[in-house]
Amino acid sequence: MGDRPLLQVDNLSVQYRTRQGLVSAVDGVSFDVRPSEALVVLGESGCGKSSLARALMRVLPRNVYHVGGRVSFGDADLTAMDAEHFRREVQWSRMALVMQASMNALNPVVRVGDQVAEPLRVLRGWPSGKARARVAEVLQLVGVSPDFMGRYPFELSGGMRQRVVIAMALVAEPELVILDEPTSALDVLTQASIMNALKEIKRELGTSFILITHDVATSSELADRVALMYAGQFVEVCDAATFFSEPAHPYSRMLMASVPRFRQA
Rank of each mutant, 00 (worst) to 15 (best):
P5N: 13
L6F: 12
L6T: 10
L6R: 08
Q15R: 14
Y16N: 01
Y16S: 04
Y16G: 03
Y16Q: 01
R19M: 04
Q20H: 09
Q20S: 15
V23A: 13
S24Y: 00
A25I: 02
G28C: 11
F31L: 15
R34P: 09
P35N: 09
A38H: 03
L39A: 01
L42V: 04
G46V: 07
G48H: 12
K49C: 10
K49N: 11
S50I: 10
S51M: 10
L52H: 09
L52Q: 02
A53I: 05
L56D: 11
P61D: 06
V64N: 04
Y65V: 00
V67P: 08
G69L: 07
F73K: 06
F73T: 00
A80V: 01
R88W: 05
R88C: 01
R88E: 06
V90I: 15
Q91H: 14
W92Y: 02
S93E: 05
R94T: 04
A96E: 04
A96L: 05
Q100L: 09
Q100D: 04
A101M: 03
N104L: 07
L106T: 08
L106Q: 02
P108L: 03
V109A: 14
V110Q: 12
V112C: 13
A117L: 05
E118L: 08
P119K: 03
L120E: 05
L120G: 09
V122E: 09
R124C: 02
W126A: 14
S128D: 12
A131L: 13
A131P: 11
R132K: 13
A133V: 04
V135I: 11
E137N: 02
L139W: 12
L139R: 12
L139M: 14
L139K: 11
G143F: 03
F148V: 14
R151N: 05
E155L: 02
I166N: 04
A167I: 09
A167G: 08
M168T: 06
M168S: 08
A169M: 04
A169D: 07
L170T: 10
V171P: 08
V171L: 06
A172D: 12
L176Y: 13
L176C: 06
I178G: 02
E181D: 14
E181S: 08
P182D: 06
T183A: 02
A185V: 02
L186V: 01
L186Q: 06
V188G: 01
A192K: 13
S193M: 05
S193Q: 14
M195T: 00
M195R: 01
A197P: 00
A197W: 00
A197K: 12
L198H: 06
L198S: 07
L198F: 05
K202I: 05
R203E: 15
S208R: 11
L211T: 04
I212H: 05
T213I: 11
S220A: 15
S220M: 12
L222N: 01
L222I: 15
D224M: 06
D224S: 07
D224I: 11
V226Y: 05
M229A: 03
Q233Y: 00
V237T: 15
F243Y: 11
E246T: 08
A248I: 10
A248R: 15
P250D: 10
S252I: 03
R253W: 04
M254S: 14
M256Q: 08
A257L: 01
R261I: 09
Q264W: 14
Q264C: 10
